[in-house]
């Protein structure tokens, strides 16, 4: 019976992230528009777009193979599974013991692999450019992400995201410089992975510098809806990871009962609002980089990850 209940909470979490993801992306867009003194599209716009795309027919290119048709489902599924492993409003949910944070990175990596394959599949030049750039970014962002993960795992003594969040919450970690470095590194990786400014512009469609949009240019209908939804989920995932590891206050612990869960959801929504606001302010304040500057940017993130791990050894030895 207890397992059934835990499963129910886990399913609620998965439904919650799926429902929140388009809203969060819409919220960031709304705040950005307000910062530019514009009206901006309504908050529910992303839901409407997804519904509209789901109703439309799929138009396939003649040269599209089965990879092109299968990829959206795989991308969406792996991303959703990855989000379900991340503590959002409660730690220690039943799925979170199934895989650790390295598995989350691997799930996102396979989603990216499928997306890049799909971009290459049709054989248009835009898709190829997008895929090659995506791989360039990924080859640098992934090691940086893993270094950050190693830092946190060394501190918490575990690679389970739930355990890391729990040990951060226990607040016997103290004031560690490595944590600050890891936070900055992770934010830089998150910006790169989610195709946000300064790496890529999520609002652009007709520019030679675009990365994410270039890969999915050939998609339409429900395929496009799934890929867009996966992109929203991924953004929510990174914000949730940052929130649960670096700002673990107010998160519920599994088995505390419904009241704690609802309080956890309330705090989680507040954290998302704060995170989305900061993201919008950052994106408004900064300009997009040239593509060839991206290695420098991500190299700095990798450097921060390395440095965080190294500095940790000094304190661990002491």
């Amino acid at each position: 019976m207890a397992i059934g209940l835990q499963l129910l909470v886990q399913i609620c979490q998965m439904a919650l992230v799926l429902a929140l993801a388009p809203l969060f992306a819409g919220y960031v867009r709304k705040v950005k528009a307000h910062l530019l003194r514009r009206q901006g599209p309504p908050l529910a716009q992303h839901y409407r777009e997804l519904l509209r795309l789901l109703r439309k027919d799929v138009v396939l290119a003649d040269s599209a193979s089965w990879v092109f048709r299968v990829a959206p489902y795989l991308i969406f599924a792996t991303t959703w599974v990855a989000v379900s492993l991340v503590p959002t409003f409660a730690i220690g949910l039943i799925f979170s013991y199934a895989a650790d944070v390295i598995a989350i990175v691997a799930l996102l990596g396979s989603a990216r692999f499928m997306l890049a394959l799909a971009g290459l599949d049709v054989g248009t030049s835009f898709g190829g450019i997008g895929s090659s750039r995506e791989m360039l970014i990924a080859s640098l962002a992934e090691p940086a992400m893993l270094m950050v993960v190693f830092t946190l795992s060394l501190l918490a003594g575990s690679t389970q995201l739930s355990s890391i969040a729990a040990s951060m919450q226990a607040s016997d970690v103290g004031l560690r410089f490595s944590i600050a470095l890891a936070l900055i590194g992770l934010v830089m990786v998150a910006l790169a992975e989610n195709a946000r400014i300064p790496i890529d512009n999520p609002a652009t469609h007709l520019e030679l510098t675009m990365v994410h949009e270039a890969m999915i240019l050939e998609y339409s209908g429900r395929h496009l809806a799934l890929i867009e939804a996966a992109a929203y989920l991924k953004l929510l995932l990174y914000v949730s990871v940052i929130a649960c590891v670096f700002f673990p206050w107010g998160i519920a612990i599994s088995g505390q009962g419904p009241a704690a869960y609802f309080a956890g959801i309330g705090v989680y929504l507040l954290k998302l609002a704060a995170g989305g606001f900061l993201l919008a302010v950052f994106e408004t304040a900064i300009a997009k980089m040239r593509v060839f500057r991206v290695p420098d940017f991500l190299g700095a993130a990798l450097m921060l990850g390395f440095l965080a791990t190294l500095l940790l050894f000094v304190t661990l030895a002491g």
């Binding site: 103290g174 004031l175 560690r176 410089f177 490595s178 600050a180 470095l181 420098d296 700095a300 450097m303 440095l307 500095l311 000094v314 304190t315 002491g318």
Partner: peptide
């Protein structure tokens, strides 16, 4: 006490980070 050490660590580590910023700039 722990806090004193942590702040010292923070500042000294910050110095290393700024050294890297000098290299990057």
């Amino acid at each position: 006490d722990r806090l004193a050490l942590d702040v010292a660590h923070l500042l000294a580590g910050g110095l290393v980070l700024v050294s890297f910023m000098l290299l990057y700039q």
